[in-house]
């Protein structure tokens, strides 16, 4: 039976390939855990919050491992970006679906897709060369939390806008024609009917935007200044978890290296947790058939 052996071979091969693909995420978690184990076993977890500063060293006793300002920097920059990008993204989606003439809507959508395709290093370059000197004129040094928020907003906007657009488009068409038949203005239709109906989808869009902002590295490294200190104002430089890894990985040894993997572990867990939340939210159907 030539045929069936060939089929069985194909099926086995595909199962093998799929198993490897599925295992990668387990491997990622396993290796990151294993590499961060030295720091977990030799440095008390509380030291990440109570040490005097962030001066990591290869030896646990010599170094200081206070991650708090770095965590705060990460949270402030990504939260700021989400706070700005969410309204911009939702308004963009409203513009595309209810306000813009057909061809303008198509062009704007296309532009947002292009924005999504710009590499983060290019955002960083533009931020560093154009934005930083501008902001330095308002308030030196220019490389700051504020610059980071502006760049991150621009970077996560496509995620938020395209997902919001999809969420609004998923609201049943009967509801939209219902609005028109009642003589509701496009303003009322968009803001009082469609946005509330698409609430869960819009929340998901904002959470996934947050995920992108937290995980973003290159642009943030380039525009945020990277000083490990609690920021006192919007114009102070900050350091994020991702930039810490990117900046220190090349020379880190021993417990220092391990503590960078610990940062990676934190990122991994936070991001995965947020994606899980997003999924739960998006599953909650607020509209649909009776």
């Amino acid at each position: 039976m030539f045929r069936s052996t060939r089929d069985r071979f194909l099926s086995l091969t595909l199962h093998g390939l799929a198993a490897v693909s599925g295992l990668i995420v387990v491997l990622v978690l396993a290796f990151v855990l294993q590499e961060s184990s030295p720091v977990l076993s030799r440095v008390m977890l509380s030291r990440f919050l109570t040490d005097g500063s962030w001066h990591p060293a290869a030896d646990a006793a010599e170094g200081a491992f206070n991650l708090l300002p770095i965590v705060v920097g990460t949270l402030l920059s990504s939260a700021g970006a989400v706070v700005l990008a969410t309204p911009l993204g939702i308004l963009s989606a409203v513009f595309i679906q209810f306000y813009a003439p057909l061809h303008l809507a198509r062009w704007y959508r296309r532009m947002i897709e292009l924005l999504a395709g710009i590499p983060s290093v290019v955002f960083g370059l533009w931020g560093l060369v154009v934005l930083v000197p501008l902001i330095a004129r308002i308030h030196p040094p220019g490389q700051s939390l504020f610059t980071g928020i502006v760049i991150l907003t621009l970077m996560i906007l496509p995620t938020v806008a395209l997902l919001s657009n999809a969420a609004m488009a998923a609201v049943p068409r009967e509801i939209v024609s219902g609005c028109a038949a009642l003589g509701l203005s496009r303003r009322t239709t968009a803001f009082l009917i469609i946005i509330p109906a698409a609430k869960s989808g819009l929340t998901t869009a904002a959470i996934l935007g947050l995920v992108r902002a937290i995980g973003e590295t290159m642009a943030v490294v380039m525009v945020c200044g990277n000083v490990v200190r609690m920021p006192g104002s919007l114009f102070d430089p900050i350091r994020t978890l991702t930039s810490t890894i990117a900046l220190e990985m090349s020379y880190a040894r021993g417990v220092h290296r391990s503590s960078l993997f610990f940062c990676g572990l934190v990122l991994l867990l936070v991001v995965t947790g947020l994606i899980a939340v997003a999924e739960i939210v998006s599953r909650r159907q607020l509209h649909g058939p009776v």
Partner: peptide, 19 residues
């Protein structure tokens, strides 16, 4: 908008707003 106030419409599938 005023036209549609004067001419009401009911659809094949009931379409109450989700509120």
């Amino acid at each position: 908008i005023e036209l549609r106030r004067r001419v009401g419409m009911i659809f094949q599938r009931p379409n109450p707003f989700p509120m």
